[in-house]
Design a protein around this nucleic acid. Structure first.
Length: 476
RNA sequence: GGUCCCUUCGUCUAGUGGCCUAGGAUAUCAGGUUCUCACCCUGGAGACACGGGUUCGACUCCCGUAGGGACCGCCA
């Protein structure tokens, strides 16, 4: 029987990178083992679950390229909210087997007994008031259903695929609720039933779920089902060391996208958070499918820092195939230009020139601004420094030489520059920098010949002319 | 409070008793290259939380201490 993993988000907000990593680990493990990776929406909390959140989560997974397989039976995306009847059936089964019982204690009463236990210095827990009452379905009072936790025994031991030997004494657990008074199942129960029904063989999730694993094991036990194998990955924490908050908007997958990181970058980044493969740093999605093992997952929490993310971003900007890069870049180009931008030959070449100089797609689009728009303004500081009267004459000479050029390519452009600087004993930089300011408005751009070549004769000469006028006025 | 978990350079990590005067990456610093910015190249600084054991030998095993964290709901 093959490996089947799953990711089971609750749609209560955008997918943050902690969740994305869990999804990725499950995906990568399943692919590596030649198994299946399933998705399930845990929306039993009607208060907090929203369709918009679900959309955000799916969109994030899609953007990252994490694809899932349909569940047994063909449902591409099971929702817990649709499975109420099945949970009731399983609850009835557990009741019938004597591993659960009806409890008529009200939440207020339970709260009170917890308080009393705490006051005594004991662990706050349900005291078993209804455990042996043998209450039937006809008690006449609203009732919840609780698990009958075995008195003793090493029931909750398991060999964690990541953490190693784990578990605790069942005596530490109290008789927790499985079904609410309205008959609906609580999370721990729904998860067990779902994982069983979906044929999940390996549950890979965050460490925060580790201490609830014993309870789930007890449910499997009560139902007489074989539990899956568990692997609990260390948490992702914020830069300060705090747990990732659901409200950490800045850590949502979408926010990384909007900051101009490519999906390849984000995927690689989260893969290396808590997982490693020797000294390798760069992994494509295909690499992950090939190399991912649970042995490579570490034990300690990882902080989310931008350092390596930015380095990876730069790496992918430099190495991604041109069409892939342009696909990612398009929306940033459009935003920078303020209109839909057709990607012509010149723009494609410019993008190649920008690969080495951009940390993000946002920066790349910004550096392309001089090409995307004709309303580029001269930066005051740059103009004040580089467009002085003394440069007006050489710039004029250059404009004249450029106008006479029969071909507008790198060698011709360079020859034109030489014809101006050599007789005047100027350094190339003395002329290049003013020209750069003239055509891009600022002091940063790709090498000057390439910049002019890409911009084209018309636009270059027009901007040069305007700059010469500025230089002449310079100190006057 | 209880149970459980974690602890190697700032950060991500390699390391499964001798290969470790602890490796890589990133960040940082200094040089080089250069028409700007970057890229790139070279070099520097930078860690086994602490204390006890076990052992011929401990970053690696055990115990304790400290620090950090997760979980203890008719939330997921």
């Amino acid at each position: 029987m093959g490996v089947v993993t799953r990711y089971a988000p609750s749609p209560t907000g955008a997918l943050h990178i902690g969740g994305a990593r869990t999804a990725l680990f499950n995906w990568a493990f399943a692919r590596h083992e030649g198994g299946q990776f399933l998705l399930r929406i845990e929306d039993t909390d009607k208060e907090r679950s929203t369709a918009e959140s679900e959309k955000l989560v799916l969109e994030a997974l899609d953007w990252l390229g994490v694809r899932w397989d349909p569940a047994p039976g063909g449902d591409p995306l099971p929702h817990q909210s649709q499975r109420g009847p099945r949970y009731r059936e399983a609850i009835a089964e557990l009741l019938a087997r004597g591993h659960a019982y009806r409890c008529t204690c009200t939440p207020a009463e339970v709260e009170a007994m917890r308080e009393r236990a705490k006051a005594r210095g004991d662990k706050p827990r349900y005291d078993g008031t209804c455990r042996d009452k043998q209450l039937g379905p006809d008690v006449g009072l609203p009732f919840a259903v609780r698990l009958r936790v075995p008195e003793s025994g090493g029931w909750t031991r398991w060999e964690d695929l990541i953490a190693g030997p784990a578990g605790e004494d069942a005596a530490e657990l109290d008789d927790f609720v499985l079904a609410r008074t309205d008959g609906s199942a609580i999370y721990h129960f729904a998860v067990v039933v779902d994982d069983h029904d979906m044929g999940i063989t390996h549950v890979i999730r965050g460490r925060e779920h580790m201490s609830s694993t014993p309870r789930q094991l007890l449910i499997y036990q009560g139902l007489g089902w074989e539990p899956p194998l568990f692997g609990h990955a260390p948490l992702l924490v914020e830069a300060g060391g705090k747990k990732l908050s659901k409200r950490a908007e800045s850590l949502s997958v979408q926010s990384y996208r909007d900051r101009g990181f490519t999906p390849e970058t984000v995927l690689n980044y989260i893969a290396r958070l808590g997982w490693s493969h020797g000294d390798l740093e760069v992994f494509s999605q295909a690499d992950l499918a090939r190399l991912f093992t649970l042995e490579g997952v570490g034990q300690s929490p990882s902080q989310v820092h931008d350092d390596k993310l930015i380095w990876l971003s730069q790496h992918y900007l430099k190495t991604l195939p041109r069409d892939v890069l342009l696909g990612h870049l398009q929306r940033f180009l459009d935003a920078e230009a303020g209109r839909p931008v057709p990607v012509d030959d010149g723009l494609a070449r410019l993008v190649d020139l920008l690969r080495d100089r951009s940390k993000t797609l946002v920066e790349m689009a910004s550096l392309a601004r001089f090409y995307l728009r004709d309303d580029v303004a001269l930066e005051p500081k740059a103009a004040a420094k580089h467009l002085l009267p003394a440069i007006a004459e050489p710039l004029g000479a250059l404009a004249g030489a450029l106008e006479k050029l029969s071909t507008w390519d790198r060698p011709s452009l360079e020859a034109a520059f030489r014809s101006v600087i050599e007789p005047r004993k100027l350094e190339l930089g003395a002329l290049a920098q003013p020209v750069r300011v003239a055509v891009t408005g600022g002091t940063v751009s790709p090498p000057i010949f390439e910049t002019l070549e890409v911009l084209g004769r018309e636009r270059s000469l027009r901007r040069l002319g305007a700059a010469i006028a500025v230089a002449q006025r310079g100190s006057a």
